[in-house]
Amino acid sequence: MRRFAIVTGFGLLMVIGGAVPGLAQEAELDSWFERAKGAEFSGRQFVVCETPDGERSEFVTLSQMDGVLVVDAGSGQSVISRGELYDLAADGTVLASTFDGHSPWSLDSRYEVSDGATVTVLGRQADVVNVLEGELVRLELAFDQTTGAVLRSVSFNGDGSVYCTSSFLSFSEDAVMGAMPVAQTTAAIVPLEAQGVLPDTLAGFGRRDTFVGPAGSVAGFYSDGIFSFTVLATDRAINIAGLAQSTAVSFGDDTYQRVFLAGRTLYSWTTRDGGFVLLGDQPLDLQEAVLAELPEPGRANLIKRFWRRLFG
């Protein structure tokens, strides 16, 4: 397993040199995130997104310590730690979900990381880090110098307009943590090795995990290092229960049902072979780019389908 260094001639230097800058970018952003992950704080965060259907916003109270993040959005509390999620309902019931997948974080090679200025957020000194795609800033992060926490993040659409901003309205270096919740119900999300069902990459996002989704669907978790989404695929149409209102949106000839939330967008549609759902935090143009690479909405002609199934 362990290898030992063997020094060889200089010829190899020319061949292998190229891969290093990308890795350095990735390692740099990772070290910022690693520090943020270990930060201890509590505060109230405001998330606001500009969408074609209007503004979507939400207040969230956050508290983080020892790698455990407690999120309170008013209607209930969630406790999140690596691969575990506890949802505490108002009536006191606790649902735990566990996930033992394998999804090492990595940053897509289209991104570059650049350190920006020092700014003041909530009277605190913060270092700005920009994640760029060519000339375009895709994500701007402000890391608190004292704790390492992300005090502010702004994501941008492909045309340079702001998509979502999340920023702290109040921030304290003390975390307010209760005891870890005890779950009445635990739902395990089961990883799959189902190859070929969902594409390995979609618009520059890599499939990092594949697992059994709700109602037996195949679920793929995709990420490019800064944005992420899930695709659910089934062999039947999907009705989303409890979804208040969705609007129809068309890209070219293709029509989808869409709902914007603060920080997430959901699409659902039915293809000739089954139902699909997309839920993600990527900016508007990247939503469209991902949809363009998935099976398009449409209802197959039944007679055609019959012949195809019978005679290939």
Binding site: A27, D30, S31, E34, P104, W105
Partner: peptide
């Protein structure tokens, strides 16, 4: 006695982070 790549896989971080 795991290799750096194996550690990175188990921990879920890039190899560069493990080096560091």
């Amino acid at each position: 006695g795991l290799s750096y790549a194996e550690i990175a896989g188990a921990v879920g971080v890039p190899v560069g982070t493990i080096r560091s």
